[in-house]
């Protein structure tokens, strides 16, 4: 090989390596932008709202005056809603997943249900709001009540829970099932005592994440009539109610700038609750991961 041929190829390698380095930093910058946005968002909200998060704010009802407004009705409304949504969505969701994974025959009907669940997960949340408005508010005549909102929410998170539960159930090794059946257990005994306990961590993690989605969801509840000015805690299925995101939305849309600080305070409370839920989910996932 003579000297003249080596020289240009050395240059070529140099440009390729430099290109690689340049793009590497470009890619890094891109991901940093995303992270900076997150940091900025959290910093802004903390900065604006932290001074307004007081004990009074946590235990006051909505009020027309900034120093008297509070998020108590929102917190209690969100909790009451979850008290209905969580059992309904988890029972129906896990049952659907069990049916699809353990019982369903490999036929067109099963495939149809599967595709249907996937498509439901992609339907915009506001369309679920319209569904709830027609069925729960008007047809079932619940009106703008807690149960109408909670059932709408259950349907909204259902597909997410189904998919998470299916994955958890699928990850239980076949040997466990075969061993149980071999010992003379029936199919349901195997599922109830072997498969479900083994997949509980996955199901719990998925469900908590799905429900934390539901707690932050606003649009469908606006449609099914969550109110903004509520001065009581919901005490029955047919109570009027409000939830945290609705309160935040109503404060955000006031024209006076000071209300935005109150909104920021509400957001802090909401984010803290979401953070706790997510932390629990991550903790469960890490604690019970890779048992098999």
């Amino acid at each position: 090989m003579n000297h003249q041929n080596v020289q240009p190829s050395k240059n070529q390698i140099k440009t390729r390596v430099i290109q690689n380095v340049i793009f590497r930093s470009l890619f890094f910058v891109a991901i940093t932008i995303a992270l900076v946005f997150l940091a900025l968002l959290i910093y802004r909200i903390l900065n604006q709202g932290i001074g307004y998060v007081t004990i009074d704010f946590l235990k006051n009802f909505p009020a027309p005056y900034i120093d008297k407004a509070g998020i108590f009705a929102g917190i209690m409304g969100s909790l009451s809603m979850m008290a209905i949504t969580a059992p309904v969505a988890v029972v129906v969701g896990v049952s659907t997943a069990l049916y699809l994974e353990e019982y369903a025959a490999q036929n067109k009907f099963t495939r149809f249900i599967q595709v249907n669940v996937q498509n439901l997960a992609g339907v915009p949340s506001i369309v679920f709001g319209l569904l709830g408005l027609t069925f729960f508010v008007y047809l079932f005549n619940f009106g703008y009540t807690l149960i109408a909102g909670a059932l709408t929410m259950s349907l909204l998170v259902l597909p997410v829970i189904v998919v998470a539960a299916q994955e958890a159930i699928r990850s239980v090794p076949k040997e466990l099932r075969e061993a149980s059946i071999g010992m003379g257990a029936t199919k349901w005994q195997t599922i109830w005592r072997i498969v479900l306990p083994a997949s509980v961590p996955g199901i719990l993690t998925g469900s908590i994440l799905a429900l934390s989605r539901a707690i932050g969801e606003t649009a469908p509840l606006i449609i099914v009539g969550a109110a903004t000015a509520i001065y009581t805690i919901p005490d029955s299925f047919l109570s009027k109610y409000t939830v945290m995101p609705i309160q935040i939305y109503s404060w955000t849309s006031r024209p006076q700038a000071e209300w935005q600080n109150v909104a920021a305070a509400g957001i802090i409370v909401l984010l803290v609750i979401l953070l706790v839920m997510n932390a629990i989910a991550v903790w469960i996932r890490n604690k019970f991961q890779n048992r098999y």
């Binding site: 992270l35 968002l41 932050g216 984010l271 979401l274």
Partner: peptide
């Protein structure tokens, strides 16, 4: 990756607030 997932878990009403006020 988990930090990016936090970005995905933030409620949209919070994003709306951020868009309008910042």
């Amino acid at each position: 990756k988990p930090i990016l997932e936090i970005l995905a878990g933030i409620p949209t009403v919070v994003y709306g607030f951020f868009a309008l006020t910042f």
